[in-house]
Write a protein that binds this DNA or RNA. Sequence first.
RNA 1: GGCGGCAUGGCCAAGUGGUAAGGCAACGGAUUGCAAAUCCGUGAUCCCCGGUUCGAAUCCGGGUGCCGCCUCCA
Length: 477
Amino acid sequence: MPFLFRDTLTGETRELATLEPGVVRMYNCGPTVYSTPQIGNFRAWMFADVLRRALELGGHEVRQIMNITDVGHLTLDDTESGEDKLEAASRREGVTAWDIAARYTEEFFESARRLNILPAHEYPRATQHVPEMIAMIRGLIDRGHAYVTPAGNVYYDVATFPAYGRLSGNTVEELEAGARVAVVPEKRHPADFALWKRDEQHQMQWDSPWGRGYPGWHVECSAMARKYLGDEIDIHTGGEDNIFPHHECEIAQSEGLTGKPFARLWLHNRHLLVDGRKMSKSSGTMYTVDDIEARGHSLRALRYMLLATHYRQPMNFTWPALDAAAGAVRSLDTSVRGITAADGVADDPSLAALSAGAETRFLAALEDDLNVSAALAVVHELRAAVNRAQTVSRGDAARLRGTWERLDSVLGLDLLAHAASTPEARPDDAEIQGLVDARTAAREDRDWARADAIRDELAARGIRLEDGPDGVRWTRD
RNA sequence: GGCGGCAUGGCCAAGUGGUAAGGCAACGGAUUGCAAAUCCGUGAUCCCCGGUUCGAAUCCGGGUGCCGCCUCCA
């Protein structure tokens, strides 16, 4: 079965037909590193991560590139009201823009790692690809798609690229009528966008044929995608806000230069809302990964939650929904941990059929425009079926673990590792074990009041007890 | 002002013409000393109004509410 995706450019659901059979060249729009990323940003990176994992489960080799935008950019075309995020952060924190970029790049990597997002194959930085961008701008000027103003700025001439607006559904005329773009006299058309800005005040500046300055925002992705993936790529992803102007401009740059279709599929994820509203700093809803942990939630629960809503649906973050995700993860952990094998138990052919069927349906759901919600339904049905099976043969147990491993290769919840691991050692382990033993003794004496009192005390400390046939197991919440 | 999207049980969320997946919570039962975990079972006609159709959550029209893009933004 081929993968089907809804392509933003055509509005159609289309088959993934890669340039090179079996190899997917994928470019994901990454972070702009001027502040700590919030969980809405991670919805986009998580989408890219699951997409990559699903393609790999489907047998594709994926070459994944994610840019790090570490150059500050003034808004499109003005030097008065525009604010450069990196320079603003630099002023606020009293360090250079370079320090800001380095610091938040590290934060991004750290949070991504904690969310079990697989590293892309390259994370090209804009600051390290200025020569490539200059070369691209030169090519665009040579081909008549860009022009240099007397002030030393270089703009893309949108009138020379008739397809401009096709991705977003905008037309150049409407954009002009919208009049939200400040009129800059030196531009031929209000929708023309900057490829190079001459600015000797800017903290980050480079020499160019047009004077010292810095590159326009959009050109970095065109230049870096081309360098690492070639003139044509299979998949380009980003948040819905990137559709216009960023990706629209990328198409104009890349195709204007090469004359070849840039990306075969454009995939965009909808935004994450908090309590049904756009998250905002003023309402205190721009949660970071640290905020989630500070509230006592695991990042596995956050990962599950971010996964569980289809990427093209607006997703609503609420704390009760995060609780629900935590419950779902716990039930999966319990089930995987509970797979117990015994000698002398015969293989159960129905179990093998069950897992094989689950894997098939799981992949089929993912192939259908990455329907992770439907895939999770398969996962939970398998979970319930396995729980019903109780003790299984050694062969079946190994097969089941194999199935869970493959399902988890997409989910990224580390289910097997969690099932196998013993709780991490803590200083009060001995004390807790002592209380557990005391409760066991009380139960043997049928002193239920004392046994329950101990259980309550442990519960208050976040210790969960499970009385099983093989004794008591305890875990930390 | 222009363009686009969404509205499914208490909460989260699949499903785009053939009679409502899944998770969490809740309730009843099994199990348990009592619990926890697990298993079995219970719940929605799909924002409102009108239309098309043998048949609509799914298509069309009109409302209402919310969200997004048009400016940096995942």
